[in-house]
């Protein structure tokens, strides 16, 4: 148990990597399995973070109930977004979903009554009430636990649950039809299945995972603001799933660790460029952009995927 007494900076990095693993898993369901090129996944991340926080902190809902409510609201929002946009051609879908994310971020900035605007909002119940209590009772038994450790453990338990549930769902008849929908709409329609409904369901499932990730993000940040929900969050998710390979589940988890963890969050601990912090941050994202370009150009199937996946994504 000494491991958890002081988890250090890499523990914090691992928490963020886990949050992104869940977030990217949602995108994987939508893009990799549903064939929906959703460029506004950050919108559901935002919904999860804000809905659960507002319900828990301002309306006294329990943490679990608040989290589930956030996921439910995100799923409803996903279906509402899906209704008009899923009929659009690929690049219009991308632009529209991207715009949806930006609209929500604008609303979060502007509707101060609800979100406190750019000043940001607090989600301290988990860190204060739960973690403090937990550490106190453990300390009584002479077990010392870092204050960041509970969320780290919770996050990674949830990563495993989400990955497993996704993996299992995709092996049910529902998952098989979803896969067929992505490969050939017409064939699925011929079987009497409503391809549109399957895509919308994939969108909703992916939104639920993004909302869960959003709630964990809120707990991890404690204080957060709309600036944490820029489109780059979605793009980081895309880098993860493309690097892993479209359709892969465990590859997505591994790539979340490598890209969001080791590269984006962790590079400040292992890479000393001698540059000022701000420039080093810019350099990190230049590398992310370049990596995305190189993968798309030279290995569109990702590290663990097959080339057919990328082709099927274009129908």
């Amino acid at each position: 148990m000494e491991l958890l007494a002081e988890i250090g900076p890499w523990g914090a990095v691992a928490t963020v990597a886990g949050i992104y693993a869940i977030f990217a898993m949602g995108l994987q369901v939508q893009v990799g399995h549903g064939g929906v090129d959703n460029f506004g996944q950050v919108a559901f991340f935002l919904i999860g973070a804000y809905a659960s926080t507002i319900l828990v902190e301002q309306h006294g809902m329990g943490l679990v109930a608040g989290t589930l409510a956030g996921m439910a609201i995100a799923m409803v929002a996903a279906v509402i977004v899906a209704l008009p946009t899923l009929r659009l051609r690929g690049d219009f879908l991308a632009i529209t979903t991207l715009a949806f994310g930006e609209i929500l971020r604008n609303v979060a900035v502007n509707e101060r009554g609800l979100t406190k605007g750019s000043a940001g909002i607090d989600a301290f119940t988990f860190r204060i009430d739960i973690v403090r209590e937990l550490r106190r009772s453990l300390r009584d038994q002479d077990i010392l636990v870092d204050r960041l450790a509970p969320l780290l453990i919770l996050t990674w338990v949830l990563v495993l649950v989400v990955a497993l549930v996704t993996w299992l769902l995709l092996r049910t008849p529902w998952g098989r039809v979803l896969r067929a929908v992505r490969e050939d709409d017409a064939a699925v329609r011929a079987l009497g299945k409503n391809a549109f409904a399957y895509r919308a369901q994939a969108m909703a499932l992916g939104a639920a995972w993004a909302a869960l990730a959003g709630t964990l993000y809120a707990w991890n940040q404690v204080h957060f603001s709309p600036s944490g929900f820029e489109p780059i969050v979605t793009f980081a998710g895309f880098v993860i799933i493309i690097a892993a390979g479209l359709g892969t589940i465990w590859g997505t988890v591994l790539m979340a660790i490598l890209i969001q963890g080791v590269l984006i969050e962790g590079s400040r601990y292992w890479l000393d460029t001698g540059l000022p912090n701000a420039q080093e941050a810019s350099l990190r994202y230049m590398v992310v952009g370049l990596a995305l370009m190189l993968i798309v150009r030279f290995r569109p199937q990702g590290l663990f995927g097959s080339r057919a996946e990328m082709a099927a994504a274009d129908e």
Binding site: G90, L292, M310, D314
Partner: peptide
């Protein structure tokens, strides 16, 4: 390259 590849390439270029 297909549509998704082109979109992601443009995003990568934009970020870079």
């Amino acid at each position: 390259a297909g549509l998704l590849q082109k979109l992601l390439m443009a995003i990568g270029l934009a970020l870079f």
